Computed example of a mutant assay.
Amino acid sequence: MADKNISDLTGIESFTALTFSSCSDNNLKSLDLSSNVNLTDLYSHVNQLSSLNCRSNKLPDLDVNPNSALTFLNCSSNEISSLDISGLVNIEQLFLQQNQLTTVNLPSSGSSLWKLEINENQMTDIDVSLFGNLRDLGVHQNQITSLNLKNGNNSNFASFNSEYNPNLTCIFVDDSGWSNDNWSAYKYAPSTFVTHQLIVGT
Rank of each mutant, 00 (worst) to 15 (best):
D127F: 00
N167V: 09
Y164N: 11
C54K: 00
K150F: 07
L130T: 13
N180K: 12
N151Q: 08
V128Y: 01
F160V: 02
L113P: 07
Q100H: 14
D181R: 10
H140I: 09
S112W: 11
C75M: 04
S86Q: 00
N57P: 02
H140G: 13
T40M: 08
N65M: 03
L137H: 07
E117W: 12
D136W: 14
V46C: 09
S155R: 15
S111T: 15
S109W: 11
L134H: 00
S68P: 03
E120I: 09
V64Y: 02
V64N: 03
V104R: 04
N65C: 06
K115P: 03
Q100S: 09
D174H: 05
S184L: 10
T40L: 03
S111G: 13
S44K: 10
L137P: 00
G138W: 01
I118M: 12
S109M: 14
I126M: 10
N161C: 15
L62Y: 05
L116I: 07
N121P: 02
F72P: 06
N74L: 05
W114E: 07
T103G: 04
S176T: 13
P107G: 06
L73K: 01
L147Y: 08
S129L: 06
D61E: 13
L52D: 02
T40W: 04
S50M: 05
T40V: 12
N153K: 09
I91Y: 05
L147E: 02
I171H: 01
A185Y: 11
T124K: 10
E120Y: 10
T40I: 14
P66S: 03
N47D: 04
N142Y: 01
F172T: 07
N148Y: 12
S112M: 14
S82Y: 10
S51D: 08
P60T: 11
T145N: 09
S76W: 00
P166I: 08
E163R: 14
K115R: 14
N99P: 02
G87H: 06
P66I: 01
L168N: 03
F157Y: 13
D63M: 10
D41L: 14
L149R: 08
F95Q: 08
N180L: 09
S86P: 07
V89G: 00
F95K: 05
V89R: 09
D181T: 12
T124Q: 10
V64L: 11
H45Y: 15
N57G: 01
C75D: 05
G177D: 15
A69T: 12
T169V: 12
Y43K: 13
N180D: 14
G132P: 07
I171Y: 04
F160N: 04
W114F: 13
F72K: 04
S76Y: 02
I91T: 06
I80C: 03
S86V: 02
V46G: 12
S159P: 01
N154H: 03
S162E: 01
L88M: 07
S146K: 14
T103L: 13
N65P: 04
N99H: 01
P60K: 03
S111E: 15
